[in-house]
């Protein structure tokens, strides 16, 4: 069984703190993209019904 490298967990956790802003921004932008597409789709539907 391979031992987990827990001895250096502190280093890895600190490194993760640098990655988190990227993850948060990407998640935020993904969510906003999804909202944009939904808004576009409902806008298209409304226009279609209007016709």
């Amino acid at each position: 069984m391979t031992a987990l490298p827990v001895a250096h967990a502190g280093h890895w956790l600190v490194n993760l703190l640098y990655v988190l802003p990227v993850v948060v921004v990407v998640a935020m932008l993904g969510w906003q993209s999804w909202r944009d597409r939904r808004a576009d789709a409902s806008e298209g539907d409304e226009r279609h019904e209007g016709v």
């Binding site: 490194n15 640098y18 990655v19 802003p21 990227v22 921004v25 990407v26 932008l29 906003q32 993209s33 944009d36």
Partner: peptide, 23 residues
């Protein structure tokens, strides 16, 4: 503006990585 979501993600990634290595 929407097209630039992607560039924003790239810029944030470059900045964080740069600061990580500076650190």
């Amino acid at each position: 503006t929407r097209s630039q979501y992607w560039m924003l993600a790239v810029m944030v990634a470059f900045t964080s990585l740069g600061l990580w290595l500076l650190s």
